[in-house]
Design a protein around this nucleic acid. Structure first.
Lengths: 92, 92
DNA sequence: GTTATTGCTATGAAAATTGTAGCGCCTGCG
DNA sequence: CGCAGGCGCTACAATTTTCATAGCAATAAC
């Protein structure tokens, strides 16, 4: 399951998530949204480009494949809402 | 989206995936299946325990909440099959 | 020319991960 | 008893990844 390994890089899922809107983001906006330092963001961006998920026409947005992935992530987001209810983010 | 941060630890999703069977695994079997050194596996196990996903009644298995997560991961697995078709794991 | 914002690289320190060795604890098994 | 084998898990040093910050070259506006 190579995809599971790809997702196991810090911030990668988060980047996808921050790109869920329609409008693409700038490098700096994405860094701020995903709370990643530029070096890490750039590394992830390269991986996402190589995986065919990231479009970089001027600004950063998702390819159709990336949009599919985002859709496939939807149940996981729903689960995480339930989970956050059961395990509220009070402490560390 | 705290859950997305939790998943961004190396091997965590992989562990979940390896636990998809009915029978729980031993520590060593899980380490072998997920291809993780014992130190990392133990760190993940603690995080999963703390998140209420991991049951440790003798051997390691998923709690009902963990099973829900696994179910929520299903579309992602389907997506990854499509993705593997589009981006075959030939090169680096 | 000055000011502002952009994408992105550089750097040194801190944190995470790796591979391997091995401890203490059981369970046979003769 | 004595000893082999598996178990969960810790210890350690080396490597890799991530971090936070500073800053450069380019572009645009004024």
């Amino acid at each position: 399951m190579a995809a599971l390994d790809l997702f196991g890089r810090r911030g990668l899922l988060r980047i996808l998530w921050e790109l869920r809107g329609e409008a693409p983001l700038t490098f700096r906006a994405l860094a701020a949204a995903a709370e990643l330092p530029p070096g890490t963001l750039n590394a992830r961006l390269k991986e996402l480009k190589a995986a065919g998920l990231m479009a970089t026409e001027g600004a950063y947005g998702l390819t159709p494949l990336g949009r599919d992935l985002l859709a496939a992530l939807e149940p996981l987001v729903l689960w995480s809402e339930d989970w956050a209810r059961a395990y509220p983010p009070t402490d560390s």
